[in-house]
Design a binder for these strands. Structure first.
Lengths: 358, 358
DNA sequence: TTCACATATGTGAACGATTACATATAGTAT
DNA sequence: ATACTATATGTAATCGTTCACATATGTGAA
């Protein structure tokens, strides 16, 4: 950081006090029109730029939101949520400090500490890993919004209706005449099995419930051979799509194979498409495929019918909640925690079609 | 920001002065072992967390890098570069403030100003839009690294060898016996045509040159019907893959269609794959496809042979350069600008195979 | 005339750290 | 004994803002 022009320089240049310059900067208090012009001229001539640090220190407000998330790559879901948050933040003069956690509780902890030290005005946890870390933030008095995956710690939250999304996908397939529908998703008991802290509302559970309930609704049996539950957050590059590919391989080996596959993540669906192609099976002629998220869907072959998540909106709402809290009087603090639920919509593309005749 | 424990509280709690607490915090100067323990205990007991703002204000160093980039979504390339920068930054106790520009010069300008006001220690421009904005940063004395697309403004830079990457892809195809190879890429004269500022080294030009030169090298003709040049940075969701799909459609209509397609971006290649699938053409049996970047490659059907960019490394090196500059004595300032060139590598997957017999 | 009030500007104390400098003690070489 | 040095700690200025408070002038009502 080189030598910078300060507000004192501007004041001196304009022959005024720093207080007056501040009044112009903040646009409040009494300032004569003429004086204001002088100040603006002085700012222009000196090339003054406000030092946000000093301002933040004095005002006890950094105009910065912290965003802890799984990782902006390779799963574009998080990148999109982050983008949504940033865009909304910018609208209100806020910036977002991103922190990629990659599912590591220790890293998440470091992230929270970093953000606390930087005195962010609020923290967004998109898929929090360890409730302790959420608690740490809350204990330090920072407003928190949890997104997608939420712990038992009481904070604001932005969620989506996974059950409805999952149901919509199933209704779509059944409408097309499919009766044997395979499911690839996360194992609701994954965290429990590993002794890791679980989320309050498990998205894996909700999506699976949608699958099961819709089948039941139409009197269709749930065939365990057609339900594959794997790790959900092992987002490593090929590995993850690899899961989808592997499970699909298994489905094809079943005595009475499915005519459709519902994968609860576009990446899993991508893997499924790869396996089907390798087997020379046409999509959707021989097999329909539905994904979830709407990340890779438009780019896949064939383009993927998917349960589209409003990712930008999710991030945007999270940011908005935190920003609204800033302006709100302190007294409002112990109010009820906001819990917003956004909705998905089914985006029909080329990977789904009528069930083949048998 | 609620009431916080300050260094004064810690000092009082330990019955010492703030100077001593700072000495412990900064781990320098003389502090008796016993005293140090008292301080650490006081920190523990009071739950003290350093206020980074105050520190940065005094030290004239924010331990923050600014990163202006196109957009972390939907093209995962940028997300990956950003991740690489962040990871490297974290290693040295730095944070990265991201700013998505989306190709808008005005937004980029706001980004630079925001970062300057926040007194970041350095700025990374990943695909700078307007040289004026780069100049603005430089003029303010902030160290700058330009990545990928570089303007004429003299700064440090991290680039990749596009020519070599493109050549490698072509060599690979020719080795497989392909002689009619189509090219989908960015138009080197795109910016010029639109009267927009151009980059110093045009990646579009370099990649096209690799294509042309390798064809020439093997005595193969460059057929203009097989060269499609489009907008490069219109990264809108489907639109971009749509370009790849559209151009491929055209190639198939040519009297003597190609047996391979080289697209200078995975997204374009994704579009090509979609069109081929729609036409019932097998990949790689009827047509080979090569991409560039290594973003979507593993997820496509079939998985895509691509020119892999070392995205994490690109971001990492950019961050590293800026961080090294921090520790360097001020005198080193007017030294030569670093210009690093990283190399790509061809990642062969399932989308390329021997040229079909005719 | 006097007081109240709106307008306009300045003074100096914060904000929470770091750091140059001062002070104090003990050990050691001269 | 003196002077020097290493060790240990404290004092107060400083970073660049904002803001509570003080001051000053002009205007209109009582």
């Amino acid at each position: 950081m080189r030598q910078h022009v300060t507000i004192k320089d501007v004041a001196k240049h304009a022959g005024l006090s720093t207080a007056t310059v501040t009044r112009v900067l903040q646009q409040r208090g009494y300032v004569a029109e003429e004086t204001k012009d002088q100040v603006l001229a002085a700012i222009e001539e000196t090339g003054y730029r406000v030092n946000t640090l000093a301002r933040a220190l004095r005002q006890q407000q950094t105009k910065t939101l912290g965003h802890l998330l799984h990782c902006i790559s390779p799963n574009p879901f998080f990148a999109r949520v982050a983008l949504g948050a940033e865009k909304e933040a910018h609208r209100y003069g806020y910036n977002v400090l991103l922190y990629n956690v990659e599912g590591d509780p220790a890293e998440e902890r470091r992230g929270v500490e970093t953000l606390l030290d930087r005195r962010v005005d609020g923290i967004i946890f998109t898929t929090a890993v360890d409730p302790e870390n959420v608690q740490l933030a809350v204990s330090n008095g920072v407003p928190v919004v949890q997104v997608e995956r939420i712990t038992h710690v009481e904070t604001h939250a932005v969620l989506i209706d996974n059950y409805a999304g999952s149901s919509a996908a199933m209704e779509h397939l059944i409408e097309l005449g499919h009766e044997r529908i395979a499911y690839i998703g996360g194992d609701p008991h994954y965290y429990q099995k590993r002794g890791e802290p679980t989320s309050y509302r498990l998205i894996e559970e909700e999506r699976l419930a949608g699958y099961v309930d819709v089948l039941n609704k139409y009197g269709l049996p749930v065939d365990k051979q057609l339900v594959a539950l794997g790790e959900y957050y092992s987002m490593e590059d090929g590995g993850f799509a690899g899961d989808g590919a592997l499970y699909t391989e298994e489905f094809l080996g079943v005595a009475n194979p499915p005519t459709a596959i519902f994968a609860t993540c576009d990446i899993l669906a991508a893997g499924a498409l790869q396996t089907l192609y390798r087997h020379g099976l046409g999509v959707p002629d021989d097999m329909s495929v539905v994904g979830f998220d709407g990340t890779y869907a438009p780019f896949l072959t064939p383009s993927l019918t998917t349960v589209q998540q409003p990712m930008l909106e999710i991030g945007g709402r999270a940011a908005q909640i935190l920003i609204e809290l800033q302006d709100a009087p302190e007294s409002e603090e112990p109010a009820v925690q906001r819990r917003e639920q956004l909705t998905t919509y089914l985006s029909v593309r080329s990977s789904t079609g009528p069930a083949p005749d048998r």
